[in-house]
Design a protein around this nucleic acid. Sequence first.
RNA 1: GGAUGAUUAGCUCAGUUGGCUAGAGCGCUUCUCUUACAAAGAAGAUGUCACUGGUUCGAGUCCAGUAUCAUCCACCA
Length: 897
Amino acid sequence: MKDLPKIYNPQEIEDKIYKKWEKSGYFNPDNLELPEDAKTYTIVLPPPNITDKLHLGHVSMLAIEDLLIRYHRMKGFRTLWIPGTDHAAIATQNVVEKKLLREKGLTRHDLGREKFLEEVQKFLEKTQKTILRQIKKTGASLDWSREAFTLDQQREKAVRKMFVDMYEAGIIYRGERIVNWCPRCHSTLADDEIEYKKQKAEFYTFKYSGDFPFAISTTRPETKLGDTAVAVNPKDKRYKKYIGRTFEVDFCGVKLKLKIIADKNVDMDLGTGALGITPAHSMVDWQMAEKNNLDIVKVIGEDGKIRAGFKNYSGKTAAKARGMVIKELKKQDLLEKEEEIENNLSLCYRCNTPIEPLPSKQWFVSVDKKMKRLGNKSLKEKAIEAIEKERIKFVPERFKKRYLDWMENLRDWCVSRQIWFGHRIPAYYKLKTKSGKLKAVEKIYVGLEKPAGEGWIQDPDTLDTWFSSGMWTFSTLGWPQNFKDNKKSGDLKKFHPTQVLETGYEILTLWVSRMVMMSLFALNEIPFEKVYLHGMVLDEHGKKMSKSKGNGIDPLDMIKKFGADSVRLAMLIGNTPGNDMKISEEKIESFRNFTNKLWNINRYIDQHYFKHAFPDKKDISRKITENTKADKWIINKFIELIKSTEKDIKEHRFSQAGERLKDFTWNDFADWYLEISKFETTTNKGMFLRMILNDLMRMWHPFIPFVTESIWEGRQGNKQELLMIEKWPTINTYENIIDGKENFDLIKEIIIAIRNIRTKNKIPAGKKIKVIVQTDKETATSIKENEILIKNLRTHVEKLEIAESGKKPKNSAHQFVAGINIYVPLTGLIDIEKEKAKNKKELENLKKYANGLERKLKNKSFLEKAPKEIVLQEKENLKKAKVKIREIEKYLESLKK
RNA sequence: GGAUGAUUAGCUCAGUUGGCUAGAGCGCUUCUCUUACAAAGAAGAUGUCACUGGUUCGAGUCCAGUAUCAUCCACCA
């Protein structure tokens, strides 16, 4: 017999087990012994940012994915889970820039592109491994031999090929467009990279000049330096007469030519009902300018300052220029009104700098252009079709609608970013020199490599980080395999499309939609069959956990304290798809207690039944006749458990699967069957216990891999194979050995009733009692068969009398349950003096408590009426006093509300 | 403004296609070191399932409306 420690100690075990798994090579499906035609099951890990440190959101994601992966591996699938990291262009560049400024006082421009990228590289080498190392701590069974990075050589190839293919298909184009420009990051932002903040703003109403006929309203007077039109509603009687006319005005020293145009989108009731049009600095205005062929005057430059040519405003920041304009308007007495309104400020999601809408040359992916290779459909149409035809399903289903809504309103995707860290755009320009300095693009070439010949310069911009991560399902599987055709082979053929994409709902549009479009474009194939969306992990007060707020629970601390299994289980149970979850340390602790329970269940069975071998195939093929009511009961329950767990996992109810498993393990298996085995020692007990325990380990393994593998490893009589590649249990084994169902619940109820009588009547522990049971003949037989259990399972029954009928015995406690009368004669069992003393003491405590309550109740009207009397008058009667105190407590509760 | 979700025990949350007395964990009360586990065991208390109607033999579950909260999208001159 081996000595197992009394307490499960994950810290000592987990790293060792993980190394053992890695050494086995079974994370890699190529090493699994499977039939040729085994189905594949593939998940790509949503790559965490290289700057990330493991947070609970990651653990939640890893726990769910590892559960799916381990389950399917045990079910005999060719199972692949691909790890990797994302270069997160803007985020990473920001971090390095901040670091540079802090440590050396330098900006990236001081260093220059090459030197700066070297700095990023240095930083990256340090941080990239951190998150991967931390992922291993959670027990994730990822195939590390296939690890990928969104910015490594292979992915670089894929990105270039994709860009060139799209360019050649005519869906990538270069165009000028108002973009959301972050003056701090010096980059454009996609619509969904903007955050809005409600703020108070000054809303100014003024005339451009003395000779302009009416006033306009704006929150941004400084941009009015670039106005080329004024829009009014065509129905607006006030302005009808001006429509079509052009005014030349002197606006604060700057000459403007303003055409009065009509547009039905202008709200007549807002401000003066007239809207100054600044095509270069507002999305809406840009669209009106396009419609009306207006001139475009850029006022604000990429540095967020007023451009040259605007008198003394030039070179000033927008905010400063605004002040100057207002001052000037006041001086000229043109400002009519100044009011405070609430509006939404657009902010860069990375650095919270207000964004400037600016016109700029950018690369776009057209989502509406129809293509031959997609059967004369556009990316948008294909991406909608895939979901509408349910080739891709969402869990939970409601996200299908959100995806479709978003997809239908999708505009062309701006893929160029003015940052240095990322995939450089494979576009090359030949520049024409004009008057020494000014340059214009003469020729554009888009290709995999720099074209031959002199004078070609590569586009300085890089690609949106979602461009590379959008290709993640196939770029990780070796696409492109060659640059000539799109035939699939190897991993790509075997594992694509993948089965599930499991990710957070917040990047449904950002990432999922792009993956669908890119996979359809590149392979004419969906990237995954199912999208499982998890919610966010919030702290115990329902707030977002973030590093900056410092309210996060560090999963690594938790793993160290309670073990990875406990953290995983806490993330799985009570977590439902698409819903946010709150988490607290207490919750994790409670699951640590469970892993410890599991450890001790095994410890007990191992110590007492180590001799009992498993039934081999021969034994199982015949019915085992010697089994008791309890045996049949537990085995039938277990059969149900196997069925329901399988169904739950299939239908993505991981929380419920875990809860049912836990309920069976703890309440049925440990608390009853194991206890029964201490008294009902039939020949097969050990075998049954070990069989069920072994299969329980198999079923628990996808949830809590470390403790189960560790128990498995230590089980005596097991062959030294890893639990992770064991087969998921089947019900046949159990159906074969057990015949028919048994109602054991009746016996359970009787036992509970006896225990109840003991506590209620305060019969001292260990004191033997006599029990009289009155019931019908049939039940009596059934009870007789289980006499040993009824006498021993923490009931301490010395004598059990079973009668078909009879009178109520004198001076005895009684309970009626399931048609059975249970009596326990009390004479001589309770020491009355002792009881009295005890009651007295309890009463003392109650009095003290009541006094405390009274103090609390002071000043409350309730006090005048009763409580003192109620509590203290009733003090002689313990029961009544208790009831009254409860009433007061409730009253106090209601006062709080 | 549009959409989606939430509202169940003191707290955090489960609850499948409507079905018996609505569950779990933590907390609370009482008892217990009893052949593994005090990180345990046993017993117990606590619910107007947000509200108002409707459908039904039957509603936490389905439908309509209301309230509160959250999130997303759009607008923001």
